[in-house]
Each structure stands twice: as structure tokens, then as C-alpha cells.
Amino acid sequence: MTAPQITKSTDEHITTLALNAPEKLNALSLEMRDALIEALQTSFMDDACEAVVITGAGGVFSSGGDIRAPRPEAQAVARTVRLKIGRLQELVRLVCHSPKPVVAAVDGKAYGAGLSLVLACDAVVAAEGAQFCAAFGKVGFIPDAGLLYTLPRRIGGARAQHLMLSARAVDTPEALSMGLVDVVAPRAALLATATTEARRLAHIAPLAFSAIKSLGTGGCNTLEEAFAAEQRLQPLLALSHDYGEARAAFAERRKPSYRGH
């Protein structure tokens, strides 16, 4: 029986999805992309799920695209590449616009499209010894899966350009210092730390979380756009149940119980 491309586990409302092809260093095959998209969609629709952690099995996050897959006939190359990139873009888009927090728990290598998937997440927790690399140029490709957008937003334009042009690997201490990683944990505590981070993000009121996230992915490029977003969204949020609940919980010195409306 073939092992599932994605394995799923739950810890008190936090869902962990693990890329599960360690014999291929969790390369993002077309089948794995489809399986992860389906697993994420199911998790986002599950009311019992408050946040998602994405990790990799076998001590590695992902080596990137599956370049070991058979090369198609010449006339089908462009069509096949568009199909594969399209599914990868759909995956990254799903994570970037998710209604719930998504945390990357990175052990071992996060290379190429694996790095792109990591940077689509809301927070990055890395194990000691993890490595990050925009390795696309080494196989004759440009960075894809949104990395041309997400990497500069994470670490700045000049530094991102250098990493993409040099295709050099970055270890955990350097990744933390440049802002590529948010939290570093011992390998044995990686998933526990990532789950704690996911739970911390899930404490934010759901409507506010979705609004902040949507504006962070390109909704506010100037000060005036930020002002306009505030004028548009803040009055609507003030009418929500969650805002009233937050005020009541603050006055009563208790934890709020949000409903997402």
C-alpha cells in the first residue's frame, strides 16, 4: 500500500500536516501538491481546527520541485511546466490567503519551492541545523511559487536579490538574524514550539486576523492605501460579535470566546 503524500495529526485544535515523501526529501511532486491543497482546504473548513502547522517527515522540510520526475516529450514541456507551476501557485495562494494561521515547522532543508512554501506561511519556526536556499538558478529556473514577492517582503529587496542570484544556503542563525525565520527551537522541540506559535496566532480574533493578512499580501502599498483600508474595515469590525466579545472579556478579565463574525 502506498504511503499517503500528506499525513495529518491534531493537538488541541492545532492541525499538523506533514509532507510525507522522505525518500525523495519531500520533493513537491504534482501528487503532493494536490494532496496538500486538499488537506489545507479541509482544515480551513473544519470548525475544530484553529490553526495549521506544515512540516516535513524524515528530518527534512522539502528539497523543492521534483526534478527527478521523468522529463516530458519536447512538445509537452511548456504545457507540463505551466500545469505544475499552476498547482504550486494555487497552493501558495491558498496559504497566503488562508482564514486561519499557518505556521511552517522547518527541519533540515527548505530549498527551492520548499522555501517558497515556507515563506507563504504566517510564521516560520526552524530547528537548529535547518537550511534555507533559493536554489532555482542551479537548475536553470527563476524563483517561482511567489518567492519573488515573499522573499523581499521578508528580508528586504537587496538581500533577497543576492540570495536568489547566489543560490547559497543559509543556516538557522543567519536566517534568524536576517528575518527569514521567526523562532528557533531544538530539533526535539520543533513541533511543540511550532504548535505553541500557531496557538498564539490563533488567539487573534478571526475577522481581524483575516483582514490584517489580506492587507499584508499587497493591500497596502502606500500610506494613503493604509488609511483607506482603515476607514473601510474598522467600522465593519466594530459591528462584529468578536469586537463586542473582546471588550466584554477585557472588562471581565477573562479569555474572549470568538466566533468569527
Rank of each mutant, 00 (worst) to 15 (best):
R159A: 13
R68T: 04
A160Q: 11
F209N: 02
G114Y: 09
I85M: 10
R153Q: 14
G114C: 02
E197G: 01
H13E: 01
G179M: 13
A51I: 00
T172A: 09
I204Y: 01
E252K: 14
R71W: 11
A57C: 08
E174V: 10
R253H: 15
C133A: 09
R168V: 10
F227N: 14
C133D: 12
Q234S: 11
A126S: 10
R199T: 01
F141G: 03
V77P: 00
P70I: 01
N26S: 05
K213R: 09
L165S: 14
D107P: 05
A248E: 15
G146S: 06
L163A: 08
L30H: 12
I85K: 14
T10Y: 05
I212A: 08
H97T: 05
G179I: 07
K8R: 09
L30D: 13
Q131R: 12
M164L: 12
S166L: 11
K109W: 05
L25G: 00
T7M: 03
A74R: 11
A145P: 14
A127T: 10
S257L: 00
S177F: 04
L115T: 02
K8C: 03
D34A: 03
Y258M: 00
G216M: 08
G137F: 07
L233V: 11
L233W: 13
A167E: 12
D66M: 04
R254F: 11
A51Q: 00
Y111N: 13
T7Y: 09
H97G: 01
R33Q: 14
E252N: 15
T42M: 04
E224N: 05
L36T: 08
G129V: 09
R254I: 14
V60A: 08
L147Q: 11
G137E: 10
S166V: 03
C133F: 06
G64W: 06
T7W: 07
V52K: 13
I14G: 01
V139H: 13
S62P: 11
T10P: 02
L165Y: 10
E90M: 10
H13I: 00
M45N: 15
K100V: 05
T193K: 07
L25P: 06
V53D: 12
A208W: 02
G218M: 14
V184P: 03
A39K: 07
C121E: 07
K100M: 03
H97V: 00
R254C: 14
L115H: 07
I14E: 05
T7A: 02
R200V: 00
I212K: 03
A185P: 06
V52W: 10
S240V: 06
A39Q: 12
V184D: 05
R93E: 11
T7I: 07
L191H: 10
G156N: 10
S166K: 13
A208E: 03
T10G: 00
V92T: 14
I67K: 08
M1A: 12
M45V: 00
K255W: 05
L190A: 11
L163N: 04
L147W: 05
E73R: 01
S98Q: 04
L147M: 13
